[in-house]
Design a protein around this nucleic acid. Structure first.
Lengths: 230, 230
DNA sequence: GGAAAACTGTGAGCGCTGCTCTCGCTGAAC
DNA sequence: GTTCAGCGAGAGCAGCGCTCACAGTTTTCC
């Protein structure tokens, strides 16, 4: 991050960034399966084997792009929440959902990289966890604010789910009621169901006015976690 | 389907089936990106180029597997519904959701093939549409039954969504109220959000007792489309 | 029944891929 | 100033999807 010591180190960070940039370009243009190390190297005017000095394998390059994608999505969501800062929690929730959808539609291949099929034989390393949690953390932050302001609506939990609900609550948001945490986790997954279906074309010939449809669905999601519209 | 005319035709259908079987085996073991035409041919004791007499390209073979996967999932869902035939619609809904989840967990790579990232530069041909619709059709059938029996709960729709809601209703279920159809489409997508998050590992370190969690979420989905538990 | 046409498997080959290894060069640390 | 780690070049390996000319077999048609 700060001053690299010598010209060599500086060059290294620059080349690394250039590789990631070109890889991201190819990813956006062609999708992850078509991302080729050799093509990246070719475009950068270097020989393919040189690239292995920077990323030990194609998967490592992909991992770097995955983290970047999670971060870009998280940033878009957080920016939308900041813009909606003085609105009611329910409206902030919808704004964040719409930002997630907007980013996904603008970057379908990067979205597919993080929320589509995982690359087989490769499990995302620990490094990705913080970046991957940003949207979830943000959504729970909104619910927490709502809870502080005026409490949230709660629907009872079946007895069999209570141990798990308590566990999730301790892990994710000890200051919220377990019913709300459970509903929040479900809503989090369901949000990406809506977005994924749209991005991956499952809504073709089914939903036409997808923006309006999504806004409504996101609002109902908010309702489901106990947020109320003023 | 019926009697093939000659020995040649019979052989052709047999070889075609053998190729699909072996391909499905490799798909289940390694995932779609690792599915290799040459490996399939090798395993079948034929030379790779011979395989092109049966499937003009790797994508065509994948398409065949996609249709099969949609059908297998649809069949699992329909079987579950049949087993729950005399229960209340809400319970049938949950049973179908659980069947979808169960199939997806048992066949993660085939699930990824149909509900994960689409293969870039390849759009699923029209042929896949009927198979792909089976789960949705089934879910709407349950809602329809509930509606016939005693009506379903309805939450009002915002004015901006009404044209689209009417459009979807005409297309999908003209005998149901637009509010219900809209909620049904959303629930359909959200179901696959829940399933996808579990299959693709997004629930790792978040949800532990996933079966119980899912059952509850599916029940809330049912509630969202107006189904009531007796 | 026999000629013509359609179908099927073979093997070589093209251009691409991820990845490895050895080789010289060069900037940096002691 | 020497030593050494880091770097790029280039050749090469095994694998991939796919094409093509060829030979053998089955079906079709007269």
């Amino acid at each position: 991050m700060s001053t690299p010591r010598g010209a060599r180190a500086r060059a290294r960070t620059e080349v690394t960034a250039a590789i990631k940039d070109e890889a991201r370009r190819q990813l956006a243009a062609e999708g992850a399966p078509r991302l080729s190390l050799r093509a990246v190297a070719r475009e950068l005017g270097m020989v393919s084997s040189a690239l292995y000095r920077y990323f030990p394998s194609r998967d490592d390059l992909l991992t770097a792009l995955i983290i970047d994608a999670y971060d870009a999505l998280g940033e878009a969501a957080e920016a939308a929440d900041a813009r909606a800062g003085d609105m009611a929690p329910a409206q902030r929730w919808v704004a964040v959902c719409e930002a997630v959808r907007g980013w996904a539609l603008a970057h379908p291949h990067e979205y597919a990289l993080i929320y589509g099929s995982p690359v087989p034989g490769y499990s995302a390393p620990e490094t990705t966890i913080p970046a991957a949690s940003r949207v979830g953390v943000l959504l729970f932050g909104i619910v927490r604010d709502a809870h502080r302001q005026r409490g949230v609506a709660r629907t009872p939990l079946p007895a069999e789910l209570e141990p798990e609900a308590r566990r999730m609550t301790d892990d994710l948001a000890p200051d919220l009621p377990p019913e709300v945490v459970t509903a929040g986790v479900a809503a989090w997954a369901q949000l990406f169901g809506l977005v994924g279906f749209e991005v991956f074309g499952q809504f073709n010939r089914v939903v036409e006015d997808r923006e309006e449809f999504f806004r409504h669905a996101a609002a109902r999601l908010a309702h489901g976690v106990g947020l109320v519209f003023p």
